[in-house]
Amino acid sequence: MHREPEPTPTEPAKAADDPPLKADNGYTLGPVQAGPACCDPQPLIQVENFSLRYGLKTALANVTLDIYRGCITALIGPSGCGKTSFLSSINRLTDLIPGCGITGRICIDGGDIHDPARDVQALRRQIGMVFQKPTPFPLSIYRNIELPLHEHGVKRRADTVAIIEQVLRDVGLWEEVHDRLHSSALSLSGGQQQRLCIARALALNPRILLMDEPCSALDPIASGIVEDLISRLRGRYTIVIVTHNLAQARRIANYAAFFWVRGHAGSLVEFGHCRQIFESPAHELTAAYVNGARG
């Protein structure tokens, strides 16, 4: 598609010069990189002609799109256009919804995820997901992360403790909670809960992170912290993020996909480099949406 080498759209937002927001102390991911050069993108997730329906109602029609390894892909579009549905198709969470049916293919590394021989648990382990509303389990902070680790075979306490500390540092939560790991996760603030959920997803060392409006329930400061974090994860993870905040999409994403409701089903209108979608959209709906005229 877009062959010309392009720098990452914009600098990741360094939310003002507020010292508490620049949390770059002690993270284990290494220095902040702008991610791999996206001039030679390799598709990791390939979606072909994917449609999804709830009962008789089609929620997504004929989506075809590649998601590139190591990049941040933003999904934008009005409410109800199927962004969440698309996201939860990638880790087959839609399997859990009664009456939900799909056609088409989603391949990860060339392998169809709906292959009957596919181990769904292993698939979901590779794909971390963060929901729109923070969803910590009503357990202790420690147990929130220990539980999935235990499920996936990390049983030695020393390993568990090390991983928990690492991921909590990665999301910048360690300093805030290390002395109360055994208190309830529900005692955290909303932003802390969301970061805990991100940490929980990271603990399984996934390759792909799906984030459904991770900042929508957060105040601007917490949202800045999470956004910062997402930018820092670029390159290590392939990230697909749904956001209603176009400025945010513009700041952090390498690619953007614009969804719209056509007829009664959501469909993909345009996909491309973030900068291109925002600055020179090919489709008039996209232009209207990113310029705030509609949606």
Partner: peptide, 10 residues
Amino acid sequence: HRLSAAALGM
């Protein structure tokens, strides 16, 4: 909680 647990591969 069920969805989160499933998404974590439990």
